[in-house]
Simulated assay, not measured.
Amino acid sequence: MEIDIHAKSFAGRPVLGPIRLTLGQGQRVAILGPSGIGKTTFLRIVAGLDEDFEGTVTEIGRTTVVFQEPTLLPWRTALENITLPAGVTAEVARALMAEVGLAGKDALYPRQLSLGQQRRLALARAFAPAPSTLLMDEPFASLDAETAGRMLDLTAALLDRAGASLIFVTHDPAEAAHLKAQPMTLRGSPATLS
């Protein structure tokens, strides 16, 4: 993946300055920085969700995103929350659900799952289409330390198995280290990576 952002502004206020990043297959990068610096904005640009910026993002392969909130479809079952958006078979979805500890929960709706289970479902959904790059935006922020630790272990194992690259937005350098992600910091105004 080639990221070449020249500038990003909101209502004329510069938010991101020049940012160049090349992400090789299997490479893991963690984007650190204080709240409001532009980490989520950077990730939304990379994900293709924000096209109002100067520059280019060239992705090779498939990119998936795990957001701060699980962003599940409340009117669909756990199984359908994987099969529909990821376009995979029920067999593939069930195998991933088992891998993340949700075996037998196929017919439950998101409201019937704990927050930790919803996050595991979102993680399974992200890995279902066999992405070459996974983008994660502080997905463990609202979890207790024990659950967050289990989610980090699970994420690391899935990344190892898939061989996917990672761009991981976090406030916590320990999370970056846990995922063996190279830390990079957004700082300045407009923010740049260092």
Rank of each mutant, 00 (worst) to 15 (best):
E2R: 15
E2T: 15
I3P: 13
D4S: 14
D4M: 12
I5L: 14
K8F: 12
S9G: 00
F10N: 00
F10Y: 10
A11C: 02
P14L: 07
L16E: 09
L21A: 09
L21W: 03
L23I: 12
G24T: 03
G24L: 07
Q25H: 06
G26P: 12
G26T: 15
Q27M: 00
L32E: 03
L32S: 04
L32W: 00
G33D: 00
P34I: 05
S35D: 12
G36W: 06
G36R: 00
G36C: 00
G36M: 06
I37P: 02
I37C: 12
I37M: 00
K39P: 00
T41C: 03
R44H: 13
V46Y: 01
V46T: 07
D50G: 03
D52R: 15
F53Q: 06
G55S: 01
G55Y: 09
G55T: 08
V57L: 00
E59F: 09
G61H: 06
T63Y: 03
T64D: 11
V66K: 01
E69D: 15
T71H: 08
T71D: 13
P74H: 04
P74C: 03
W75S: 07
T77I: 09
T77H: 01
L79H: 07
E80V: 02
N81F: 11
N81L: 09
I82D: 03
I82V: 15
T83M: 00
L84Y: 03
T89L: 07
E91T: 10
E91F: 02
E91R: 09
V92R: 13
L96Y: 07
M97G: 10
A98K: 07
E99D: 15
V100Q: 10
G101H: 05
G101Y: 02
G104K: 04
G104I: 01
G104M: 01
A107H: 08
L108H: 11
L108G: 02
Y109Q: 12
Y109C: 01
Y109A: 13
R111W: 06
Q112K: 14
L113N: 14
L113S: 09
S114L: 04
G116Y: 04
R120Y: 05
R120Q: 04
L121T: 03
A122Y: 14
L123F: 08
A124V: 04
F127T: 10
A128Y: 03
A128D: 11
P129G: 04
A130C: 13
P131K: 04
P131R: 08
S132I: 04
L134T: 02
L135P: 06
E138K: 02
E138R: 00
P139V: 14
P139R: 13
F140L: 01
A141Q: 10
L143D: 07
L143N: 14
D144G: 07
A145L: 14
E146H: 12
G149K: 05
M151W: 08
A157M: 12
A157Y: 02
A157G: 10
L158W: 10
L158P: 02
L159G: 03
D160Y: 08
D160T: 13
R161S: 12
G163Y: 09
A164N: 10
L166N: 06
F168G: 07
T170R: 04
H171P: 08
A176W: 06
A177S: 11
A177M: 11
H178I: 09
L179N: 13
A181M: 14
Q182H: 12
P183H: 05
P183D: 04
M184F: 07
T185A: 10
R187H: 15
S189G: 07
A191F: 03
T192H: 15
L193R: 00
S194T: 12
